[in-house]
């Protein structure tokens, strides 16, 4: 447990030392959101015609992106550290490797939640009818997202040989998963084959749960595939799966 907190603290302290990372983690999703949101503003119309702007539609997806980016970026350093830094010593310490994963992922997730909270403060300004319970639930879902993608990042960092490989792999996975989660366009409006992919995409359910929570469990302007609890259930299963994946990975020798 001591080790868990020490590793958690390492992630958090390092983040606040690193102004560039702090700025980048916030600025990238924000820019994405503004550029896409304003760019598509004119041509975007929801089928359900709920009368929300594209900026508003995109908002939950952007919160998701903030969390996911932050969580994944807190694992990128492991690529180098497993061979030539802090992690090589951590691996020969008597501490259980479970704590190494938990501590590292929890640190990144905490940072993700903190940044998500910053964005969620603006929810009422978006014309979204937020409630306190909804916001707290949204942050908890952000916690699941951070854990899932932090763990995925951990597995990737363990498998790849260079930071470059990590970034390439991350873009390969992350962007399609995000695009096809209903963050960027409603799933109901796309061709059926792609809909299938979206249904199989675990991020879809995470985002649905996040959306429902952000709208205070009230009237949503768009349809979600499942209700709140089933969505949470599916995403929770995905999170546990990735966490076990990270545990499995760290118990194997890494590839040089």
């Amino acid at each position: 447990m001591t080790a868990f907190w020490a590793l958690w603290k390492r992630e958090v302290v390092k983040f606040f030392f690193d102004r560039g990372r702090m700025g980048g983690a916030l600025a990238q999703p924000l820019l994405f959101w503004l550029l896409l949101g304003l760019g598509f503003q004119g041509s975007f119309r929801l089928r359900e015609d709920a009368g929300i702007s594209f900026l508003t539609f995109l908002f939950p997806g952007m919160v998701l992106l903030v969390v996911v980016f932050t969580a994944i970026f807190s694992t990128v350093s492991i690529v180098e550290e497993k061979r030539s830094g802090f992690f090589q010593a951590a691996l020969i310490a008597p501490v259980s490797r479970w704590w190494l994963v938990f501590g590292n992922v929890a640190g990144g997730t905490t940072l993700g939640i903190l940044q998500a909270a910053l964005f969620l403060l603006f929810t009422p300004l978006m014309g979204i009818p937020a409630t306190f319970l909804g916001m707290v639930s949204a942050l908890l879902i952000c916690g699941l997202m951070g854990t899932a993608f932090g763990s995925l990042g951990f597995v990737m960092a363990w498998k790849v040989k260079s930071t470059r490989g990590f970034l390439a792999l991350m873009n390969f996975f992350l962007m399609p998963l995000w695009m096809l989660s209903g963050a960027f366009f409603p799933i109901s409006g796309i061709p059926e084959t792609i809909q299938w992919v979206a249904w199989l995409n675990p991020v879809t359910y995470g985002l649905d749960a996040l959306r429902i929570a952000m709208y205070g469990f009230g009237n949503l302007p768009i349809h979600t595939i499942l209700g709140f609890w089933p969505s949470v259930g599916i995403f929770l299963s995905f999170t546990l799966l990735t966490l076990f994946g990270a545990q499995y990975a760290i118990h194997k020798p890494f590839t040089d």
Binding site: A3, A6, A89, A90, A93, P94, V95
Partner: peptide, 8 residues
Amino acid sequence: RLHGALYG
């Protein structure tokens, strides 16, 4: 401190 923690 971090390394001490890894050794309990």
